[in-house]
Nucleic acid binder design. Structure first.
Lengths: 206, 206
DNA sequence: GTCTATACGACGATAGAC
DNA sequence: GTCTATCGTCGTATAGAC
């Protein structure tokens, strides 16, 4: 009960929580919310299933918590890109790089979870609306960069938000593709941005 | 037991099977395999849950059957595109149109199922390998069209299979996006093909 | 803080009546 | 061909020992 011990305990608690959360992200991502069992999550972290409830109140609560955390990180990333001292093209390149890197697999798990949360049915309406709102903030942030790029003349014309949607569709589609194969598969930022750039297809204009 | 009656029975049987299969596709797509309950499938078709097992031997069997059927249809579509008397660009336009139309929602459900099958974990290895092989046939078919288009000078340079992957990533990403929103959202074939076409971004070359 | 044992509910699948 | 009733299993969540 000395302060010293309490700190030790807190350290262990935090570590276990993080291990379980990390494991949960992977299991949710690979199996989906319904199919990912508590025992999958705990055993992947080499802990007993009973311990799960020492750290979280329910599977669903953890799921929601994790999704929101991931989305918050993604929004932060987009905002970070917006604040860079770079051209809009440079910002998009930085953002695309950052999205597709980040210890590879880990990042893929997290993004797949975003997709699951957006496209599946097991969340109740209020939570789902909140998720969608968070996602929209990310889209808006990207749209801002694109709009800027249009003014600079680097990007093609069109509704910025729609273009942002197309960009994310491609980026997410490629993330999924990458998740499926064991081979690393090189993801070229340039190729992802190809569809945005103005007459930029390899500079093959005439 | 007269022939007449047998025909009637067969007709009913076929109809019920189709209703259940249709319902299953929607439920699997919206909820995922694990979360889609037998009772969800049957009640959505206004039938009792017991009846399910009169028509199918198990949930998993139906799931696999449905996935393979959908993939076979997709492959057929791609091959059909390949055989058209059109330019490669015309073929891609036709294919993209066909993929994104088809009673809208129905088509979306089916494509989401493809994604689920490819990216989830609940299929055993042999089945999964078969699914992947089927999908590869579709990708190859698209790559063939793209290669043709490169020779005609309509499409940008690059490995055809990789470009096909990018194309499908975008197409799938947009399908998902469309699945999420209640609003119809216009999907422009031209915009989807934008990333493939050579210096074709609105014809803004100089 | 971590574990094992157990209560309880849900769902896939079957049996049998109509 | 369709339904309701039921079994058996599995998974979430809890209780309590260490």
């Amino acid at each position: 009960m000395t302060p010293k011990n309490e700190e030790q305990f807190k350290k262990i608690r935090d570590q276990r929580q993080q291990e379980l959360r990390r494991s949960a992200i992977q299991m949710f991502s690979q199996k989906g919310f319904a199919a990912a069992k508590i025992s999958d999550i705990t055993s992947h972290a080499n802990l007993s299933h009973g311990l799960f409830y020492h750290y979280f109140t329910s599977k669903e609560e953890l799921y929601i918590e994790v999704i929101q955390e991931i989305l918050a990180d993604f929004i932060e990333l987009v905002e970070e890109a917006n604040e860079l001292q770079k051209s809009s093209l440079g910002k998009m390149e930085w953002l695309t790089d950052a999205t597709h890197s980040g210890s590879i697999r880990e990042g893929v798990y997290r993004h797949i979870l975003i997709l699951q949360a957006l496209y599946s049915d097991h969340l109740n309406e209020p939570v789902k609306l909140e998720i969608v709102a968070l996602y929209k903030r990310a889209v808006d942030g990207i749209a801002t960069i694109i709009q800027e790029g249009q003014q600079e003349g680097h990007f093609i014309e069109g509704d910025p938000e729609e273009l942002a949607t197309y960009h994310l569709a491609l980026a997410h589609g490629l993330l999924l593709w990458n998740a499926r194969t064991d081979s690393p598969i090189e993801l070229s930022t340039e190729k992802v941005l190809r569809q945005l750039k103005r007459s930029g297809n390899g500079g093959m204009c005439q």
